[in-house]
Write a protein that binds this DNA or RNA. Structure first.
Lengths: 355, 355
DNA sequence: GATCGAAATAAAAACGTTTTTATTTTACTT
DNA sequence: AAGTAAAATAAAAACGTTTTTATTTCGATC
């Protein structure tokens, strides 16, 4: 069959060899010039750059990858819960990815996302990424008190940044929220408002930040010479369903809580849903303070007091730190712990209520 | 400095050359055997496989990529809204990515996520992916009525699957929700309930599915011999803030709506927030029906009737279709349009209300 | 028993880089 | 003007594959 004359012949993209032909220099010189090596004369460098621009030259990532052993990929482990469930969960990851991507913009790195089902899966994926050299760096979250991924990666000297800290005194790059401080601040506010029976809706205790939150919760009581309402700590996944069920269970106790401290916006929604079903009114019968990282609590009815930290900012820090880590920088300076801002939307005090 | 004797020497991973040495076959035979080529004798194939397993051989992705020109990457364009905003938006993308990732599991493909700011950005990124061969296939959403990405990719014969359909009669693989049907069903239900002033909270009209929804909305009125309340169609981004502001504006009209049809869960939350602020009670003063793809509406107070389609399922279809497309299959059979399920949580009728 | 063809395997080339080593050119010193 | 060092460039090797082409082996045919 005859070739279609209207179809322009697909001209293969310019390579370093093409440029060598057009400029008359060797491929070695071309490569050095484009990488900005000082050994090549300024005049030839300019000529080569001009030729490269004219040819629309773009370095072939595969060739570079093979030669250098680098992948120019930053891997991110994204946790998702069981597949047949479809509960509202992990919604903040969109913002995390957005932040990381912003940080990577302008660099040569691209972002690959690896979905993981649980901690064990995450550990296996991390090992595979290192063993097969699937990426040059790694970002992950959901840090356990003793996280095997951190142990492994520190040990194999693989660049990574964690969103969250483990409880071992290791040197590694990380970004975190000051959960101890936030849980303390929320609890203290409720205690100051006259609450004594305060529920803590918390993640599973093996998660490092769950323990941080419990620490802060207890410290708030201790500082007032009170004993923490340990029987009111609910632990589970971060789904809306869990928040709802926990609140229902807690409100059925002989001495139910008068206030809730919630770990995130999705459990909060569940708690509000439960209290609504039970006919309890927020700010009248019960108070709720939440941590929020996607700024949604302002739209709850009624709006509630939250500790807010836009998580996209943490995502950006993660990406920036990873770039520096992949460039060879040590982990010492690459740590940042954010304190969320309190956004007061309710008085959160028992005293202000109409009898 | 002396090398640490406790440190095991990092043995470089097995390559095809290593296997050639240990087995005595040539690298060509090794390669053919591992790819399952029929030209190699069964006995040698078995021997080679055994040696590969023993050595823990894993094909080097970079070598393969360079030789074959393939990347073994499936790119996904993830839209995010303006960076300094942090409104709750795009939360469903976690589920989409999860679904795609599930479909890719077991294949040789990995998922790269490219964050895009707007339609123009998306177009540019798509072009770069094709031009630089950054991926072997592409998935994207937010399809415009006339989407330049689809035009371009169809024209360059690059494998892709879109989440949503454009309004041009082109042959391309896609997955979509039957938005015309869903908007019609929601509107018809409200009309049957006695509503005549119905507001439609919709995305920007340039989005293809925004037009689908308007079509369904109008058809529902037309079928009853009524005229659609076109003045009650609000168009904007899909943020909670937009939902809230739209509802406030609409309720201030001389003849405000008695019901709302909302495009997604985040705008719905905004509408409910607005109605709550204005003292209107859902199911008493006003009805709200929404489309929901992350199953969160059950937790609103009160729960509202929704059209529900778990978007992770669409994500899986996207991934499956892309794999087949990248394997060389034509786009004809790779189309699927999902009809969401109605979940009735309110009567949604004016007649049932107490006077 | 030489010839042929098929089957099996080996050799070599190629993909596009970077980097090490080698060569040429230039500029300086004496 | 010869010698030398430095600067600039070129050549070649390497990264790990796949694929095309070449060679060997072996049984069957005449």
């Amino acid at each position: 069959m005859a070739t279609d004359p209207t179809r322009v012949p697909i001209k293969r993209p310019a390579t370093i060899k093409t440029l060598a032909d057009t400029t008359g220099y060797s491929i070695a010189t071309i490569s050095k010039a484009l990488r900005g090596s000082p050994v090549v004369a300024p005049a030839t460098r300019d000529a080569i750059f001009a030729a490269a621009r004219a040819a629309g030259y773009q370095a072939n990532a595969r060739g570079m990858a093979l030669r250098t052993g680098k992948t120019y990929q930053a891997a991110v482990l994204m946790p998702v819960t069981a597949a047949d469930d479809y509960e509202w969960d992990g919604v903040e990851y969109t913002q995390i990815l957005s932040g990381i991507s912003q940080a990577l913009e302008g660099s040569d790195y691209r972002m690959t996302v690896h979905v993981i089902r649980d901690a064990a899966d995450g550990c296996e994926v991390a090992r595979r990424i290192v063993a097969q050299g699937l990426a040059d760096g790694l970002i992950f979250s959901g840090i356990l008190a003793e996280d095997p991924r951190i142990d492994f990666l520190v040990d194999s000297d693989f660049p990574f940044v964690s969103l969250g800290r483990c409880r071992k005194p290791l040197a590694y790059a990380h970004v975190d929220i000051d959960n101890e401080w936030a849980a303390h601040a929320a609890t203290a506010r409720l205690i100051a408002g006259g609450h004594r029976r305060i529920a803590l809706i918390n993640p599973q205790r093996r998660l490092s930040y769950a323990m941080d939150r419990i620490d802060g919760f207890h410290r708030a009581f201790r500082e007032e010479g009170l004993e923490a309402s340990s029987d009111l700590v609910a632990e589970g996944d971060l789904s809306t369903r869990f928040g709802r069920q926990s609140a229902i269970d807690l409100m059925r106790l002989p001495k139910p809580p008068t206030a809730f401290v919630c770990v995130n916006e999705s459990t909060t929604l569940g708690v509000l849903s439960a209290l609504g079903s039970l006919g309890r009114r927020i700010g009248h019968d019960v108070d709720v303070i939440a941590y929020d990282d996607i700024n949604v609590s302002a739209y709850f009815t009624p709006p509630i007091t939250t500790f807010y930290q836009p998580i996209e900012v943490l995502g950006r820090a993660l990406g920036q730190f990873l770039l520096r880590r992949m460039a060879g920088e040590g982990p010492q300076a690459l740590r940042q712990v954010f304190r969320p801002t309190m956004i007061e939307r309710q008085p959160d005090g028992m005293a202000v209520r109409p009898a």
